[in-house]
Simulated scan of single mutants.
Amino acid sequence: MSQTTDTAAAAIKAAITENPVMLFMKGTAMFPQCGFSARVVQILTHSGVPFKTVNVLEDPELRDGIKAFSNWPTIPQLYVKGEFVGGCDIVTEMFQSGELQTLFEQNGIAKTAAT
């Protein structure tokens, strides 16, 4: 592994360790820059759980690093309690089936106050 890859991996590990619900995406939660990222933000917002995001477009090293870290070729990528959940299709399917909400509950991720 190169020094840069190690740095990206360390940043990714820190982000998913420190944030119970972590989304690596293109753009920001307020301004997603791809439809798939926008959809996952919409699902997380609808689910009412607090989440943090990292804009991979701001850091090419991180964008490549997250793909290697998860062994998953696409972005967005959702992590819950440090575990890789999946990308847009998987998150959408889990949301529609109720599995995503169950995953949040099992991991003790409380919904924020209703808006």
Rank of each mutant, 00 (worst) to 15 (best):
M1Y: 13
M1H: 12
S2I: 10
Q3R: 11
T5C: 06
T7V: 14
A8L: 04
A9G: 03
A10F: 02
A11C: 08
A11R: 15
I12E: 00
I12F: 00
K13Q: 15
I16F: 01
I16H: 02
I16V: 15
I16M: 00
I16W: 01
T17F: 10
E18F: 00
E18A: 14
N19C: 07
P20L: 08
P20H: 07
V21S: 11
M22P: 09
M22S: 11
M22T: 09
L23I: 03
L23T: 04
F24H: 10
F24G: 08
F24R: 07
F24D: 11
K26L: 04
K26C: 05
G27H: 06
G27Y: 02
T28H: 13
T28S: 15
T28R: 12
T28M: 10
A29P: 14
A29G: 13
F31I: 10
F31R: 14
C34Y: 08
G35F: 09
F36P: 07
F36N: 03
A38M: 09
R39K: 14
R39G: 11
R39M: 15
Q42Y: 12
I43F: 13
L44Y: 13
S47L: 15
S47G: 11
G48H: 10
V49D: 13
V49G: 12
V49Y: 06
F51V: 01
T53G: 10
T53Q: 07
T53F: 11
V54D: 05
N55C: 06
N55W: 01
L57D: 05
L57T: 09
P60R: 03
P60S: 08
P60H: 07
R63D: 13
I66W: 03
A68H: 12
A68P: 06
F69W: 09
S70M: 07
W72V: 06
W72S: 04
W72P: 05
I75F: 09
L78C: 05
L78N: 05
Y79I: 02
Y79W: 04
V80G: 06
V80R: 06
V80W: 11
V80K: 07
G82M: 03
G82W: 10
V85M: 08
C88T: 11
D89N: 05
D89I: 00
I90C: 04
I90G: 02
V91P: 00
T92N: 09
T92S: 12
T92W: 01
E93C: 05
M94Q: 15
F95P: 04
Q96F: 08
G98W: 06
L100D: 11
L100V: 00
T102N: 14
L103V: 07
E105M: 10
E105D: 15
N107A: 05
I109L: 02
I109H: 07
A114W: 08
